[in-house]
Structures are given as C-alpha cells and as structure tokens.
Design a protein around this nucleic acid. Structure first.
Length: 454
RNA sequence: GCGACGAUAGCUCAGUCGGUUAGAGCGCCUGAUUGUGGUUCAGGAGGUCGCGGGUUCGAUUCCCGUUCGUCGCCCCA
C-alpha cells in the first residue's frame, strides 16, 4: 500500500467542526429569523453560473477574480458565483412576472472569489442577500435597511458600535459635476477614485483627483461631507443641515435628496434612523448600482465593511426582463464574525451547540433496553443521547452527560424491573424516580423550567 | 498575480548558540473497594519539529524550494 496522502483544505476555505458550525448556525439563524419576520421568502440558485453572467457587465478583467472552469471536453465557460445579485436578477428577469410586486426575497448561500485570502476575506464565505424588487419608492430601501439594523441588534450590537453609512450616487455625481467641474466622460473614473478616498494618502488622493478634473471646491466639500459622516437624522432638517452650506443649496430639491429624506423619515418611524449616517464618501465599486448605496461598518473603522448594498434599477432589464427597480444588500459571515469576536459578543463556541434534553445512562452497559428508552424519548420529540463507552461507572457516565451539556440524565438501573427510571436534573442536581410511562411528561416539566417537585 | 512574516503533541505555546531519550499547560484515555457529574489525586497514550532538497560527521535548528497560514498590495461582489 502506498503512503497515505494528507490533504489540507484549499486556500481560503474553512472546515466547520461542530462548535464552529454551531456559531455559524447562530448567525445564520438570526439572518433567517429576521428575513422571515420582515416578510422575505427564501430562494437559491445554482452555485455556478455561465461565466458571461458576470463578464457581460464588468468586462474580462473580472475573470481573474473568479473561479472559472470548463467541463473536460466542453466549450462553455462557467464560474463559481462570486455574488448573488446577477443570479437574482437573472431569476427575476425570467420569472419575476409570476410574483406579486414588490418581490421580497432572501438567500443564504456560499459565494466564491479567487483572490488571496486576508483578514475578513476568504475564497469561500457564506453570504446573506436580502432584496426588494419592483418598488422604486423609498419603502424598498427602508424594508431592507430595517432588516439590516434589526439583524445587528439581534446579534448583540448597538448603534454606537456599528454604523449604516448611506449615500446616493446621484448626489455624489451632482457634487462632482456642479461643484467639482468634472466632465461627463471623467465621471466613472472619478467615482472609482472616490471609492478609494480613505484608502490612499490624502496628498496622493488630491493629486489624482486633480488629474481627474475634480475642483478643490468639491474636495473641500467632500472633506466636510465624507470625512466625518453626520447622523442621517440631519436629513430630517433643511438641506443645508444635511449637506452643508456649499452643497446644500445646490442639492436642495434634487430628486435624490428628496428620496434620501423620505428614507430618513420612514427610518425614523421604524425606529432605526439612529443606526444610520449620511456619508457621501460611500460610492461602492460595483458598476450596476444606480441610486441609493450603503455600507455597514464597525464604528471605529476596524475591519472591512460588514455589509454593503444599493439600488440596481437597470440590472433586471439588462438580463432581458421588464424594467424592475431593485434594492438589496449582502452580508458575509466572515467580517460580522470578526466584529462580534472583537466586541466580545460571542460566547464560548461550545455554548452554541444544542443541549441534549436527555442523556440516557444504562447501568447494564449495552442492554437493548437503553435503545428502547432512547427511541421513546426521540419519538416524543426530545433530543436524546447516550454515552458511547461501555462503562457501568455511573460517575464517568454522568461525566459524559455533563460534557455533552445535557440538561437531564435518565438513569436505567435496578428500578427498571419495576418499570421505573431515575431522572436527574443536571443543572439543579435534583433527582426523582419516574415510571417509564410518565417519563416524557416528567422531562418536559423539568425542561420547561418548572422546578422538580420535592 | 506581488510582498512581509510564520509552521514543534488534538489545542495554545516553550526549546534546541547544529550534538544522545524534544518539553509545559489544557484536552484525551485509565484508575482511586464495583449507583451519582462538570472539583481533586495518581498513572498513561500521543510528535518522521509542515513537506522536499541542499550544506554538514551530524539538521527540528542553517540555506533553497514547496504547501498551508497570518497580514498587506492588486482588486473588490
């Protein structure tokens, strides 16, 4: 026999052993719970798509960032999905008309990218997408943003720790053209450079901005509006309060500003406005965004963006569907988990594993009666486990029960001949002898917090 | 695709200025007169020092390569 070959997981991927999986489920369950409560239906699509789905808008450069492949002997190019939105837009373009508008869908699924892993970025991660399609009004934004804020709260974070930074591409464009003097042709590179504003040296930023034709007036305004994001509450007041004296007068009455103010009004009513900042520095790199864009960041700027999203009113049309305004966002599991760890919001990993309702111990090791009791409990809907060892040492078996974090131990001993078992509440230590026929009820009474009768 | 740094027990790490049997804590297994746990005590198992090559009398230690990881660049979904 040849020497065994040891395999490691591929670069940038993760193995989820039980405790890690339990933490993952903790986050996913909150995502799912929020989506459900907010009226989103779950969908999914293929894990890989035709490569063209991603290149049609972004050009061929993006291929190097995708895992793309071709079936042996085949001629079609495929790619593991790097994001969900193209799949969603494709699905809506094909069958969106079958559903009443607005469509509110979510998905929780793995996404892939071929880049070198670094903090907060792996080659495979689990991503939650939440989208509203067919509603051009600010209600779409509010539906999504409220779900995002609700999620942050349920994860144990508060508005002092994480901020939802909201922006609008039309406002940024207006600023660049009217105040910055940027020509139409230079708009796209100017927006792209803006996206990098906080990642490069201020001097380097100004130098390149000058080349792009962005006037110093606009840069000063950006420093004011994007350097220190102001609470989105400012949108409830005059335009000058929200956008400053220079830009406020120009933007006053602009549809984009009106849109943002309507969003703010509704966010206030929903009780989530205080999670939000207005930050025109948020542009987002993706080409398909058309209006409102936002990112969620840890307040101190630590870690990468926790989530990001925006309006993509043209994308469904681009994939051959009817004109369908859309707004959505995506949150990955990697960064949010880092933030929760940074903030000490995650307990010990093991604490997320499900606790067995009952741990069945048979003092005559290996007897079939143990299987009978286990199945009785399982048929009654309880989570029942037993030790894998063949010991009859009750102390050790109770140790196993404690290690499994079981809530009760069902001990099968000599009483079994009389049709009885001992039931021990492992959290409180109390123990009683119960007829087998009454076992389910006795366990449920313990599990539901009722103190065992003394 | 590029750069820096790292890899010793299941986990977190110490150590070897190149030299006999490589250590600790935690975890795991066994036991402490055979029906009561998460404490204690005593034992025990477990490492080709990531992998491959080179230098050397001798390499876990030095050099090169490689894989994986961490952090950054590019890019950003």
């Amino acid at each position: 026999m040849s020497a065994p070959k040891r395999f490691q997981p591929p670069t940038g991927t993760r193995d989820f052993f039980p405790a890690d999986m339990a933490v993952r489920r903790h986050v996913e369950q909150i995502w799912r719970q929020v989506a459900l409560r907010h009226g989103f239906d779950e969908i999914d699509g293929p894990t890989f798509e035709h490569l063209e789905l991603y290149t049609v808008k972004s050009g061929d450069e993006i291929v190097s960032e995708l895992f793309s492949f071709r079936r042996a002997g085949g001629e079609k190019d495929y790619a593991l999905r790097p994001e969900f939105t193209p799949t969603l837009a494709r699905m809506v373009a094909a069958h969106g008309s079958d559903y009443p508008k607005p469509i509110r869908w979510y998905s929780i699924a793995p996404m892939f990218r071929a880049e070198r892993p670094q903090r907060g970025r792996l080659r495979e991660h689990i991503q939650w997408n939440c989208d509203v399609l067919g509603d051009p009004s600010p209600r779409a934004e509010v539906d999504v943003l409220a779900a995002a804020a609700h999620t942050l709260a349920l994860l144990g974070l508060d508005p002092a720790e994480v901020r939802i930074r909201i922006s609008h591409r039309d406002l940024v464009t207006l600023l660049l053209t009217r105040l910055g003097g940027v020509a139409e042709a230079a708009l796209t590179p100017a927006l792209a450079w803006l996206d990098r504003r906080l990642k490069v040296e201020p001097a380097a930023f100004r130098a390149r901005a000058g080349e792009l034709g962005i006037a110093t007036e606009a840069l000063a305004c950006l420093d004011e509006l994007a350097g220190a994001p102001r609470p989105a509450r400012a949108l409830l007041g005059p335009a000058i309060d929200a956008l400053g004296t220079r830009f406020g007068a120009i933007a006053d009455g602009h549809p984009a500003l009106r849109h943002l103010r309507e969003i703010a009004t509704r966010l206030e009513a929903a009780g989530v406005l205080d999670w939000c900042d207005l930050d025109l520095g948020v542009v987002r790199g993706l080409a398909y965004y058309t209006g409102t864009v936002f990112e969620i960041h840890e307040a101190s700027g630590a870690e990468r963006a926790i989530a990001g999203g925006g309006r993509y009113d043209r994308l469904v049309e681009l994939f051959g569907g009817p004109p369908t305004p859309a707004f959505g966002f995506a949150m990955g599991d990697v960064v949010i988990r880092l933030v929760l760890e940074d903030r000490g919001r995650l307990g010990p990993r093991e604490s997320y594993l499900p606790r067995p309702d009952a741990f069945v111990i048979d003092l005559a090791a290996g007897a079939p009666r143990q299987d009978a009791v286990l199945m009785q409990l399982r048929r009654a809907g309880l989570h029942a486990r037993a030790s894998g060892r063949s010991s009859t040492n009750l102390g050790k078996l109770l140790g196993d029960a404690a290690k499994a974090r079981a809530r009760t131990a069902v001990i099968i001993g000599s009483e079994f001949e009389r049709g009885e078992v001992a039931v021990k509440d492992l959290d409180r230590g109390a123990q009683q002898v119960i007829p087998l026929a009454a076992l389910d009820g006795a366990l449920r009474s313990i599990l539901h917090g009722g103190a065992a009768p003394h």
